[in-house]
Design a protein around this nucleic acid. Structure first.
Length: 269
DNA sequence: AGCTCATGGCGAG
DNA sequence: TCGCCCTGAGCTG
C-alpha cells in the first residue's frame, strides 16, 4: 500500500525498532542472499526516505535501497519470529523484534554515491524537511503535460501516488486534464501545501484520509463508511458512485496505464 | 485452479 | 505505448 507516506512511516518504524542495533540479515527467498551475508551482524545506523524510496544504512557496509513497487509489503513482528515464508526477500532480526520484506520491486545493496544519484533524479518530497517546491513549480509551469500526469511523475514531485493525485486535485477543484503550464502559481502553492499536510497526516495515521471535517458522513448526516483501501476519500476508486459534494457520478479513465478518478461536477477549474 | 486487479516503475521499440 | 517484474486478495468456476 505504498505511497510516500507509507515509506516515511516505514523509515520511522525501522529507526525506532532497529536503529543503533546489530541485526541479523537474511534473505529466505534467496534473491538478496549475497548482500544479506555481507550485512549480517551489522549495525543499522541510519534510515532515510525520499518519495517512495527507503534506505537502510548499515555502518561501514552501505545502504539497502528498497522500493516496494505496487505489491511490496513490510511486516513487523516481535520475537520469537516464526520461520519466514519463502517469499520473504529480506528479514532483519534482533533478540526482540524482526521485520520481513516481501515483493519489493527493488531491494539492493548500494553505495553512498548510488544513493545520492537516486536523490538527484527525484523531485522534491512534501515529507522531507527543507524541500523546495519551486523546483516542482518550474517543471509544472513549463509543461504541456496534464497536471494529473505531472503529479505522478517522481522527477516532478516525489512520493505522490494514485490516491494522493486523485484526492488533491479534487480538493482543489482542478480538472485533471489541465496542462501544467496553465496552472497558476497560487494554485500550485496550494496543492503543494495541501500535499504536505495530507501526507504528514498519512504518516501519522498510516493511511490516506482526505475528506475535510465538514464533508465526513457524520457532518453530512449520512451513514458511516470506510473506502476499500482503509481510509476515507472523495474520488479514488469511487467510479460511478455519486460525489459526496455534488452527487455527480465520479468518473474514471486510463491515464498512462493508471486509473484516474475525478468528479466532473466539482473539478472544473 | 485460474483469472483479475492493485496505492509503481523500468526498459525496449 | 506496451510488456514486464514483484505478490496476494478476491473473485469465478
Amino acid at each position: 500500500m505504498p505511497e510516500g507516506h507509507t515509506i516515511h512511516r516505514l523509515a520511522a518504524d525501522h529507526r525506532e525498532r532497529f536503529g543503533g542495533r546489530s541485526v541479523r540479515v537474511t534473505s529466505p527467498q534467496g534473491r538478496f542472499a549475497d548482500s544479506a551475508a555481507l550485512l549480517d551482524g551489522g549495525v543499522l545506523e541510519d534510515v532515510d526516505a525520499h518519495g517512495k524510496h527507503l534506505f537502510l544504512g548499515f555502518a561501514g557496509r552501505g545502504w539497502v535501497h528498497i522500493h516496494l513497487g505496487l505489491f511490496g509489503k513490510v511486516n513487523f513482528g516481535a520475537a520469537p519470529a516464526a520461520p519466514p515464508a519463502d517469499t520473504v526477500r529480506l528479514r532483519l532480526a534482533h533478540p526482540e523484534a524482526y521485520v520481513d520484506l516481501r515483493g519489493p520491486t527493488t531491494c539492493a545493496l548500494i553505495t553512498d554515491a548510488e544513493k545520492q544519484a537516486i536523490h538527484d533524479r527525484l523531485g522534491p518530497d512534501p515529507l522531507r524537511a527543507g524541500e523546495d517546491p519551486d523546483r516542482a513549480w518550474r517543471r509544472v509551469s513549463r509543461s504541456r503535460t496534464t497536471v494529473a500526469a505531472l503529479l505522478m511523475d517522481q522527477k516532478v514531485v516525489a512520493g505522490v501516488g494514485n490516491v494522493y493525485r486523485a484526492e488533491v486535485l479534487f480538493r482543489h477543484g482542478i480538472d485533471p486534464y489541465r496542462a501544467g503550464k496553465d496552472l497558476t502559481r497560487r494554485e500550485w502553492d496550494a496543492i503543494w501545501a495541501d500535499l504536505v499536510a495530507l501526507m504528514r497526516e498519512g504518516v501519522r495515521l498510516n493511511r490516506i484520509d482526505t475528506v475535510r471535517p465538514e464533508h465526513t458522513p457524520e457532518a453530512m448526516g449520512r451513514p458511516p463508511r470506510v473506502d476499500d483501501h482503509g481510509g476515507e476519500v472523495y474520488v479514488y476508486r469511487r467510479a460511478t458512485m455519486p460525489c459526496h459534494i455534488c452527487d455527480t457520478e465520479i468518473r474514471t479513465a486510463d491515464l498512462s496505464n493508471r486509473n484516474l478518478f475525478w468528479c466532473p461536477g466539482c473539478q472544473t477549474r
